[in-house]
Amino acid sequence: MLKDITLGQYFPGNSIAHRLDPRTKILLVVLYIISLFTARGLVSYALIAAVLAVCIKVSHVGLRPMLKGMKPVLFIMVFTGLLNLFFTPGERYLIEWGALRVSDTGIKNAVFMVFRIMMLIMGTFLMTYTTSPIRLTDGLEALMNPLKKIKVPVHELAMMMAIALRFIPTLIEETDKIMSAQKARGADFESGNIFQKAKALVPVLVPLFVSAFRRADELATAMECRCYAGGEGRTKLHVLKYAGKDYIALACGIILLSGIITLRKLGI
């Protein structure tokens, strides 16, 4: 059902990857992505793959959720791969088939490109799998704090994100429930043409909006009752604090990036 959408789902746990500060993890992902796009040769990619493998291993998330998370972008990956495979000009052509020609560089590019997307997704998913959405928002808010100086509403953005994250699962669950209730009264969401299908959704959307507005109202009242007045002067219950392991992890990230830059200079 709708709930099975796993994009960026959090897997609770207590591994070192779970316990790192969210800011550290965000910075690490940034370093990782820069490394990934700096890498040129086989050795560099192998190094990054090795680092990612170690990270997945220590996170106890397991390979299966990683691969499952890749399903939604499978199409993009295949598409990019094919595009690179057939349309990269090269010196030698291995296969020629009318307008479709596969060159040696084409194969190389296709493999690297697909690999890069895979690594990119796995790396970012590792972060969302091991960080609860609330901590992730906290981390982002803390990292973006300097932007307040140039009048970016950082706190408000973070609050909006936190509320959205909190209510998405609730709304999905509610949609499921309302759909079931209407099906019990004989609603038919599957058959008919696109207009009939859209019309069939009215009995779901109306109650859903009504309840979303009701929830928003209740939440606003609840926040006001607890004297919420924006980010000004507000302190946190869980103050983010870098620990020894965070510095070590960040150092590892920087070493990885420097290593990749060096390898790039060497051309491997």
Partner: peptide, 16 residues
């Protein structure tokens, strides 16, 4: 579903 009518828990949220 027409023969077995089901009224959900808190059914008031299905009105539209």
């Amino acid at each position: 579903r027409f023969k077995v009518g089901l009224v959900f828990q808190y059914p008031e949220y299905q009105l539209f």
